[in-house]
Nucleic acid binder design. Structure first.
Length: 913
RNA sequence: GCCCGGAUGGCGGAACUGGUAGACGCGCUGGACUCAAAAUCCAGUGGUGGCAACACCGUGGGGGUUCGAUUCCCUUUCCGGGCACCA
């Protein structure tokens, strides 16, 4: 009988569906295990071979855990709101709701063909009102909460109102920029509008004016992580800074906890490091510098207060509010020109020319509180308004940028650190001894920092301060295809919708082109009295993992019972591209919900694995400029050529199918070719897999040719999941051969070969060795070595002609997570009823692994000389005796006694002479 | 510039805590079957020398620790990723 994968796979996929094999319910009698994939954005081009890499890995692990007796939650859904569908709609006139639904259908078909064990009854789609009702609900909870620094958690805003009414805000320590004190009497006298405006400063979801990343092309603002190199991540359009009224989420309140709790997570070091850098904690001091000629103080932040004796000038960000006040009449002109220049520069230019020194003198002088000298105040774009206080004390002796600035403007430089044995050290290194620094002289940097901060605090001219680079997240988007924000306005005051009014449905619209002035599409609707911006793409993905636990609940976002049972994600698999976006926001929402008592775990994802990207190998043809002639790869150097992407399906082993190429596009029909050895060879480049690069390999084709089981195993066989690698189909035959070889242990051309004969010791050894290795390797997600182990096992069983039921039945179960279809088929062939999924995973028996003797490699001075068979756990003295008795060893020792004999049981014997 | 990774045959990659480097697969070479091809099966396959047994070299380069290093330490080159005027 032949191995007919397409029949087998169809049969089992159908049966799993009919029998609800993958459905899972809370079951307190079993331990839970939650395996999650990052749900995909359903793009119009469907899945390519790169997408399933992580899904296959998670499916193997989920199935494995099921075999181990766990109750496994392994769901899938779609991140269905977002820019691409809306952009596509604007170009084609097709409504995003329609195209999204189509795309999801296609994705589900493709996923189904790969035999994943998803419980589709738990599917979520972020654009479904039944889902986004609860996204809106969480937003309302954020709106109705503030962050109490005293208790270090989010609390109800109603509680805050009570405190205000009772004692004003003087005893309140909240996460806010608001610093105006008021008493209980003042609070009670404020108008409704004034009260609401004050409360807005405390809410975790709040409206504020701020510089935002505005993308005119997309007609919307973007979060920091959606901007790369001054361009939008989606589409690559220019981004400019713009001051706008926006919704924000106060993620900065959680900066310290988001940082600290990273230590509790089983994530890769690089992933944690990326989050640490993004949060960007630094310790330093806030210091006030007097401006004697004005009645104001300049607040600066520094991480190196010890260098204050070397501060010879100050620099403000150009947009700093004090610039207007302190600029002297004679410098007004210069400053205005400089501000003009700064304005004219795009974010991109500014980033590209960071080395360029620019700035202007305001004419104002500040007083260095420690040297007592008057120092000039400059403005320059190298100081950013958004970080610290937007002003610095410049220490040109120790800061590279300050030094460049001082040199350019001819300002004094005073050495304050004697670097000693670290002459190349910079300010970050914090090494050396203080000089020219009054009472700090002779101190090590670390001690000096302590001493100066104490002195600053004693004099009341500043204080210790921790600063984060993390900014509050902009939450509104001037776009259509997203969750409406459940806020309405009365007298221009924003109020939350009542929870009973949720969901606030996204109204049907046909024309939702963005306008360049920032007017959101919903504002065009006459009877829309709600907030006109919608939520960003990451809103729905910040909590979807919780909804899977209780997807159909229309009373709560998540019931207590479901939450208590499933708790958190045990294994999360997805790409690195979400390091500082989704993964940070999701942790933030989880912590918020934890504070408010809705979930019981402060972190959502215990273990995170980042699958690598599968790149495409793009193929190129070389057109001779100004002609219809194409020259083969190795001959192209003699010509002036333009490389053009060619569809990978037209190329086999770098050879172009010329006829197919001519038919491929009408403009190619008269193409001529300069061949080498009668063939046209294409060039290759490894790039990201994408439609535009014509290098997309579709999994459907591979599955049609080899079947899903081979496809799954081949993707795993390519290498470690974490590694990125280019797709190539060359090796897939090897995996396919393995499945057929396994099949041939069960069937030859005509009959079923399996017998009930007892297995030999030798066969059991092969089996149990395999069980142990597979179990160990699955646990550390080393699936590529699992496949190799299976191959070795089947090769050995084939050599032994072992078609014995006792051996094969364990092997089939062992293989089931990897190749579920063929495993089910063979399990049934062995006379078993029911799905193999329910069968316990085989345990290995130490008895069959334990060797009594071991062939020891014997080395002399670390060089392998011979091998000698010895009982495994022999005493050192016995070993010595045995080894030295050997003729070969005697020869190597040349009659001299050895200095030492090193014996590691089960590993090696080494003789030192 | 800073911070993380990584470098092993012709190729993808194995070697879990220092212990026989190159598992497994691809490719290649030779052979069997065949009129022939495909498919399948068998054997070989890191390099150099040798008819051979065997010897020497070998995990990007240099150095170190160790009886023993792909693995640990220092240094250097190259590649990938992230951040980037963050005070």
């Amino acid at each position: 009988m032949e191995y007919k994968f397409s029949d087998i796979e169809k049969k089992w996929q159908q049966r799993w569906e009919e029998q609800n094999t993958c459905k899972v319910e809370s079951d307190p009698s079993k331990p839970k295990y939650y395996v999650l994939d990052m749900f995909p954005y359903p793009s119009g081009s469907g899945l390519h071979v790169g997408h399933p890499l992580g899904y296959i890995a998670s499916d193997i692990f989920a199935r494995y855990k099921k075999h181990c007796g766990c109750n496994v939650l392994h769901p899938m859904g779609f991140d269905a709101f977002g820019l691409p569908a809306e952009q596509y709609a604007i170009q084609t006139g097709r409504h995003p709701a329609v195209t999204t639904a189509e795309n999801i259908k296609r994705f589900k078909e493709q996923l189904g063909a790969m035999g994943f064990s998803y419980d589709w009854s738990r599917e979520v789609q972020t654009c479904d009102p039944k889902y986004y009702k609860w996204t809106q609900w969480i937003f309302l909870q954020l709106f109705k909460s503030w962050y109490n620094k005293k208790t270090d958690r989010a609390e109800s805003i109603d509680g805050l109102v009570k405190i205000f009414a009772r004692e004003g805000n003087v005893n309140v320590d909240a996460a806010t920029d608001f610093d105006t004190a008021f008493s209980e009497d003042e609070w009670n006298d404020f108008s409704e509008k004034q009260q609401q405006e004050i409360l807005m400063n405390y809410r975790l979801a709040y409206l504020s004016y701020a510089e935002v990343n505005w993308c005119p092309e997309l007609g919307t603002v973007l979060a920091n992580d959606e901007v790369k190199d001054g361009r939008s991540e989606r589409g690559g359009y220019p981004v400019v800074k713009k001051k706008m009224r926006q919704w924000f989420l106060r993620i900065t309140a959680y900066a310290e906890r988001l940082l600290k709790d990273l230590d509790t997570l089983a994530w890769s070091d690089s992933m944690k490091e990326m989050q640490r850098n993004w949060i960007g904690r630094s310790e330093g001091a806030l210091v006030f510098f007097d401006l004697p000629d004005y009645n104001v103080q300049l607040e600066i932040y520094t991480t190196r207060p010890d260098t204050i004796f070397g501060a010879t000038f100050m620099v403000l960000a150009p947009e700093h509010p004090l610039v207007e006040i302190i600029t002297t009449p004679e410098h007004r002109q210069q400053v205005a020109e400089y501000l003009q220049y700064v304005q004219s520069r795009s974010e991109r230019e500014r980033q590209a020319e960071v080395k360029k020194v620019t700035g202007a003198f305001t004419g104002a002088l500040a007083l260095n509180p420690f040297t007592g000298r008057k120092i000039p105040v400059f403005i320059s774009e190298y100081v950013l308004l958004g970080y610290g206080t937007g002003a610095i004390m410049a220490v040109p002796s120790d800061d590279e940028r300050d030094h460049a600035f001082a040199t350019h403007f001819n300002l004094p430089i005073i050495d304050v650190i004697d670097k000693g044995m670290y002459p190349g050290a910079g300010r970050e290194d914090r090494v050396g001894k203080l000089i020219n620094s009054g009472f700090l002289d002779g101190m090590e940097v670390a001690d000096a920092i302590e001493a100066i901060i104490n002195e600053i605090e004693r004099r009341g001219i500043g204080r210790r301060m921790v600063q984060y680079r993390l900014r509050d997240a902009i939450f509104g988007r001037q776009r259509y295809w997203g969750e409406p924000i459940p806020i309405y306005y009365k007298d221009d005051i924003p109020y939350p919708l009542d929870e009973s009014e949720l969901p606030l449905l996204l109204p049907q619209m046909d024309d939702f082109k963005p306008s360049p002035d920032g007017e959101p599409p919903l504002a065009k609707l006459k009877n829309w009295n709600y907030e006109p911006t919608t939520m960003p793409g990451w809103a729905g993905s910040s909590w979807y993992f919780l909804r899977y636990m209780d997807p159909h609940n229309d009373k709560e976002f998540l019931s207590k019972e479901a939450e208590q049972y499933w708790q958190d994600v045990d294994l999360y698999i997805g790409g690195t591209e979400h390091a500082v976006g989704h993964l940070l926001y999701a942790r933030f929402w989880q912590k918020f919900l934890y504070d408010r008592g809705y979930v019981s775990k402060p972190e959502p994802f215990k273990r995170l694995v980042n699958q690598g990207m599968i790149q495409g190998s793009s193929k190129f043809v070389y057109r001779i400029s100004g002609s219809e002639k194409y020259v083969s790869f190795n001959l192209k150097d003699g010509y002036e050529v333009t490389p053009l992407h060619v569809d990978v399906s037209l190329v086999k082993n770098d050879v172009l199918d010329i006829e197919a190429f001519k038919k491929w596009r009408p403009e190619n029909k008269d193409a001529e070719f300069i061949l080498e050895d009668g063939k046209y060879l294409c060039g290759t480049e490894i790039e990201k897999m994408s439609k535009s690069r014509l290098n997309v390999v579709n999994p459907d084709e591979i599955i049609a040719q080899y079947g899903a089981d081979t496809f799954r195993m081949y993707e795993m066989f390519l290498g470690p999941i974490e590694q990125s690698k280019p797709w190539n189909t060359h090796g897939i035959d090897g995996v396919f051969k393995f499945v057929r070889k396994l099949w041939r242990l069960f069937y030859d051309e005509s009959k079923f070969l399996v017998t009930d004969a007892p297995a030999t010791e030798r066969e059991l050894k092969v089996l149990h060795k395999t069980i142990k290795k597979i179990r160990d390797d699955i646990e550390r997600l080393s699936f590529n070595t699992c496949i190799s182990t299976f191959m070795v096992c089947v090769n050995e069983l084939t050599d032994l002609k072992c078609s014995k039921k006792t051996v094969l039945k364990d092997l089939v179960v062992l293989l089931a997570p990897f190749a579920p279809h063929v495993a089910e088929e063979l399990w049934e062939a062995l006379g078993n009823k029911g799905s193999v999924t329910a069968v316990p995973y085989p345990e290995y028996n130490q008895k069959y692994l334990a060797e009594t003797t071991f062939e020891y490699p014997v080395s002399v001075n670390g060089k392998l000389r011979t091998k000698i068979e010895l009982p495994l756990d022999l005493e050192q003295s016995k070993v010595q005796e045995e080894v030295l008795a050997s003729d070969v060893v005697k020869k190597w020792l040349e009659g001299k006694p050895p200095k030492k004999v090193i014996y590691v049981p089960g590993k090696i014997i080494n003789i030192v002479v």
